[in-house]
Amino acid sequence: MSAELAVFLVLAALAVAGAVSLIVQRHPIHSALSLIVVMVSLAGLYLLLGAEFISAVQIIVYAGAIMVLFVFVIMLLNAGIEERTNLSRMARYVGLPLGVLLMALLAYAIGRGASSQAPAAAGPAPTKTLAMMLFQDFVFPFELTSILILIAILGALVLAKRES
């Protein structure tokens, strides 16, 4: 077993364990912590795939900002342990089979389509190339996202403001 495969397996196991724990844990903070574990191990996987910049952004933005916001809101609303209510019948009888079916379908499609594809031996993507691409080929979508963020900030402010 190569060192890379070992690292992959450890990180993948961590990610899956985190995702399962997200479902099993009943307190929202514990779910949030599990999700952070998933995100950090995904950042490790990105490093393994040679996407250094994306890996750093994943931790800075996802784990370091978005999840902090989640934890902040959970603390602010003092959310307690999840109530156990009767699941709606739809979720109980259709949800789980559908979820398993979806996973099986995806796995089947991947197994048929991509099983023989080994990754192209590209070195770590230099951040400079990524930046060039972002600011030349994708400059219009990039500027659009800034408008999107502005709208999101305004929306959040308007929604969360207390009416006086």
């Binding site: 950042a43 250094e52 910049f53 750093a56 931790i59 784990a63 900002a65």
Partner: peptide, 9 residues
């Protein structure tokens, strides 16, 4: 970037 990632955690 990595340093900032760690401090953000």
């Amino acid at each position: 970037l990595f340093l900032f990632a760690i401090t953000s955690l």
